[in-house]
Amino acid sequence: MPNKKILLVDDSKTSLFMESMILKNGHYDLVTAVDGREAVDKALAEKPDLIVMDVVMPHMTGFEACRELRRLEATRDIPIILVTTRGEGENVEAGFESGCNDYVTKPVDGLELLSKVRSQLGE
């Protein structure tokens, strides 16, 4: 059975590197993007099984990208986990309103991220 593909989106190289290390541990194939616009393009081209996306990014934020991905027929069913700096109710609510399936807060806990990824992928 081929590995599941995850699209990892973050404008921070450090975050991308760290999250890549966590998810590679879970034996997933990774595709990366550095902003919301690129995330939408990569999602359409790569058809990932899941998207892990930061909220604060240039060009198109995670919330905006999430709404766009939900609008497009080809990507509307891909589960999205948002990585947010602020874990307060307001911010979380905005994330769910934009169409995300779950969220993790920074600093990212590796076990928590893997657990949520597995849960969204039905593993």
């Binding site: 921070s12 450090t14 700096t85 600093p107």
Partner: peptide, 11 residues
């Protein structure tokens, strides 16, 4: 990078 380490790894 220092800023990202403080934000993403330390919080």
């Amino acid at each position: 990078v220092i800023r990202e380490i403080v934000a993403n790894l330390i919080g």
